[in-house]
Design a protein around this nucleic acid. Structure first.
Lengths: 141, 141
DNA sequence: ATAAACCTGACTAAAATAGTCAAGTATCTA
DNA sequence: TAGATACTTGACTATTTTAGTCAGGTTTAT
């Protein structure tokens, strides 16, 4: 199972961005400073977020990024998907001798991992960026 | 987040073991053959399971391992814990400049990862080895 | 023009993973 | 009691992943 700091940073950065989104594009430099994430790394992450149309870029001076959808329409699922964080709990070898191919013959615990995957994905499908922003509204930067 | 094949193998092996548990100790060699897991790797895993008193070893010819508790009292939590699979979704640096220490100042998404962790752990706390065995009872080896 | 900010791809040190290998020890059975 | 079976332990390692860095762009507001 993968769920590492790339996904974590993506979510942190987007929450940060969403909080300032109404006013102006937010530069990665600002996010980098506020959240303590390397600028170069953020650029990698936002490149992916842009390709998946979660954010939009504004070039030039005073440029930065803006959300491409309403915060409530951006689910965690979308974010993790964009940065290649996969909630994939089981990886049965395609050509395994034991032939766990997910169809006829499954390994003893195949169903378990399917269930777990669904369980986690449900959580991600329900949580939106808006939810996270709201939770933080009573905080200083 | 860690959830890799060590934990997966541990669960697979224990389900296998639990199915034959009533009769005799089950040798790692048999599990290795049935489940297609390297014997040496299984030994590492069972060494940990034994230390956490999830299984008991029987030495000598016809030896092997037996469960040390009833299958319904072995939860997935226990298994993952034994083999060092940790459901730890966030790792805020202790001495971070941003000071996410989990107390006074939390990073923007700290609560989120806490929630996720609980969500996953609930799943693991509820599932027992017995549940998994039952799901497989209508199957051939 | 130039500086701010986006954009991209290649590279890399460190850590984790998924094992292997070697050298045992204990115990059952013949 | 010999020997085979099977547990026991620790050290080692190739591969992959992670978490970035680095270099060299391009775009655009002022």
């Amino acid at each position: 199972m993968k769920l590492t700091s790339k996904g974590r940073y993506a979510v942190m950065a987007l929450v940060d961005l969403a909080r300032f989104n109404n006013i102006n594009p937010v530069s990665l430099r600002d996010i980098s400073l506020r959240q303590g994430i390397s600028l170069d790394y953020l650029e990698q992450i936002f490149s992916k977020l842009r390709r998946k149309e979660i954010v939009q870029s504004v070039r030039g001076i005073q440029g930065g990024y803006v959300l491409n959808k309403k915060a409530k329409d951006i689910k965690l699922t979308n974010i993790f998907d964009a940065v290649d964080e996969k909630v994939k709990t089981v990886q049965c070898k395609k050509e395994s001798k034991k032939g766990c191919n997910g169809k006829a013959i499954k390994c003893l615990t195949h169903n378990l991992w399917d269930e777990l995957e669904n369980h986690i994905n449900n959580f991600f499908d329900e949580k939106s960026l808006e939810d996270l922003v709201k939770e933080n509204n009573d905080r200083r930067v």
